[in-house]
Design a protein around this nucleic acid. Structure first.
Lengths: 328, 328
DNA sequence: AATAGGTGTGGTAGCGCTCCCATGCCCGAA
DNA sequence: TTCGGGCATGGGAGCGCTACCACACCTATT
């Protein structure tokens, strides 16, 4: 930076100010510094800057997903896109924190707690991650994508999962189905719990039994397996609400394997519409999960927090929307 | 750190040495420091350390993928897993660099060139990314996942794409197909080019025409569209080698739409086996792409480079393997 | 004409850490 | 006993930058 200052004919202080937004800098000095920076190809040393500003200019994207799900789930990709897009125009770095096999619990929480990043976006979190207590009330700005279990003092964005479960079920009711089952997401995730409770609410309101429930894991294989169990236990089901498209796809396969037609014998509704639904046979009727927009919103919120702005602590809940397919 | 040193009854210098591996530290001092660190919950300030060591303790994973492909391609997820797994046990951070819409070209190269990371893994790169010239011969340790176009002085790992193209084609020849087409990957990527040349080599060796070629983009929609073009231009094709499973899935759909049976009328072979192949109807015959192992190897190589070890500049090429499905 | 306030500027301290060097110590060899 | 050499230790410099402060200057207000 000394070189830049010298080349621009100003002091280090003025150069620094010019580089950082140019408050209290005359137009001439600003221009001279800009020119010197360009000519010398100067780029500030992040470490030195961090040391004094006590900011790291990086945020973490946390995915405490322990299993293989991360491999196939389009939600992961959507999340990355959303965050990356939200960071465009800032000079923040995106640090990715994936759960690693064999890692002791609390490792991530400790990492986050020790000042390596300025803020954090948590997604795909499970009950028992220890992230919620660590981040609630802590000094680190954090936004959860997906409602946390205990949301005291936590900011979060989510889709309206309960309403999604309701809409899916209503759709099945409207087409005349009466024995409607559901394959839930993991019940240690709120998205799993909430979609289930939407289904349950609608079933009860219709005066129908809400006992045909199998827990899935958001994967194709899990959906297939769950459907087999379901059909064994409740051979009379005429519809399935799967809490994700991947599981719905698994369900389609299990149904096909048993020679059941969709939607003739069993109607199927999925959840997400992140690419999978359009690629099944028949095409899935599903609920659009505005994942990218949602993650983008989470990122914006985090940026606002980092900028010290007053951000409403209210969660942002995105509407879901039924997408017509041929499966229900 | 002063606190730790004081609590341990040693000087800052000794504390620092103890924390960083403990060379020239007596067992007693080491124990005292370890104890103090644990008691005080001390974690070193990364910025301060970086400032003096001139290392950042972070590596970049670069995905200069400009389009939507990143959304659905399981290769992305496999890459993340592989890198994350490879970093387990180190205290390196993983910084994710995705191409952002509207970003001027060269932006990434500039970023990487200015010392923000200690090393870089590049994946999914295209001709024209400007990454190759920037990284070749430059000071920044770099490993490409996927052969670069100009590999002078670059380290890379890849699967044997040419052999993959050959194996796929041979399989189709063996089942008696004679009019074999291919849907290529993007031809500004070496994986696209190499799989095509494997196909071409085998076709020529068999004395068959190698003109039924359509360029795809590694997506389902692209595969569908390419297949339609293919069938229009060459109605006599009896087999298709698609350079990715996603495109193969698109092909299956286009074929189904035209009432052609698979593999009866047209046999199909895909490429990747990263989850998609198992979920199509019929199940795809494909080539296993050992993506996670490959990326893991790339990460190990990078770590070795960072450690200053002598690493052979030879590329590491992984074998592909035919996976039986029902489509060919 | 004198004062107050605002603006651009340069000097300087210090962020938390590692590295270099000087010091003191103990051991074995002369 | 004396001396050289290894080893553990502590002191201090300095990495590159920003934040604070003091200063000069310039314009409006009394």
């Amino acid at each position: 930076m000394d070189d830049v200052a010298r080349a621009a004919g100003v002091s280090r202080s003025t150069a620094s100010r010019a580089i950082n937004g140019g408050l209290r800098v005359s137009p001439e000095a600003q221009a001279a510094v800009d020119d010197a920076v360009a000519r010398l190809g100067y780029s500030p040393n992040r470490a030195a800057r961090s040391l004094v500003t006590r900011r790291t200019d990086s945020i973490a994207l946390v995915m405490p997903e322990p299993d293989e799900r991360i491999f196939t789930d389009p939600f992961l990709a959507a999340t990355l896109r959303g965050v990356s897009a939200g960071l465009a125009g800032t000079d923040l770095q995106l640090v990715l924190l994936l759960a690693r096999p064999g890692e002791r619990p609390g490792h991530m929480a400790r990492y986050l707690g020790s000042g390596h990043v300025d803020g954090v976006i948590v997604t795909s979190h499970h009950r028992g991650d220890r992230l919620e207590p660590e981040l609630a009330g802590g000094p680190l700005p954090a936004v959860f994508v997906g409602r946390p279990f205990e949301d005291d003092g936590l900011r979060w964005v989510d889709v309206d999962n309960v309403d999604g479960g309701r809409l899916a079920t209503r759709r099945l009711l409207e087409r005349g189905c009466r024995r409607i089952a559901t394959i839930t997401g993991p019940l240690d995730m709120t998205s799993g719990v909430d979609r289930l409770s939407g289904w349950r609410a609608e079933m009860r309101a219709a005066g129908l039994p809400d006992d045909a429930v199998v827990e899935g894991d958001f994967t194709i294989a899990g959906g297939t397996e769950a459907t087999q169990r379901l059909l064994d236990e409740h051979p009379d089901v005429d519809a399935i609400f799967a809490a994700s498209d991947l599981m719905a796809e698994g369900a389609l396969r299990a149904l096909a394997a048993r020679g059941l037609s969709v939607p003739g014998d069993v109607a199927v509704v999925g959840f997400d519409d992140l690419g999978v639904a359009a690629s099944t046979t028949p095409r899935l009727t599903t609920l659009r999960n505005p994942a990218v927009e949602m993650v983008n919103a989470a990122t914006s919120t985090l940026l606002a927090l980092l900028a010290g702005e007053d951000v409403s602590p209210e969660p942002q809940v995105f509407e879901v929307e039924l997408v017509e397919g041929a499966s229900a």
